[in-house]
Amino acid sequence: MELEVVLFGIARDIAGSSKLKLTLADGASVKVLKKQLIAEYPEMSKLRSIAFAVDADYVDDDYQLRDKEEIVIIPPVSGG
């Protein structure tokens, strides 16, 4: 399946783009996506945390991704 990955902040700087297309096995979880991202962009493993969101809501590592889904990478937040 194909996923649209949207990146903000330092995650975008590491990937060098605010949008990526990734191909994962059907039914893969967020955990698998995280592994693949870190394999492609090792700098991501140095971040304090990496969270993910679908439809503007946090999803956990077990969340099962769907084909064509847009998933947003949330690097450590620092508002305020």
């Binding site: 903000f8 902040g9 330092i10 969101a53 946090y58 947003v72 949330i74 690097p75 937040v77 620092s78 508002g79 305020g80």
Partner: peptide, 8 residues
């Protein structure tokens, strides 16, 4: 806010 809101 500092822990959860996606602002960088």
């Amino acid at each position: 806010l500092k822990q959860t809101v996606p602002i960088w």
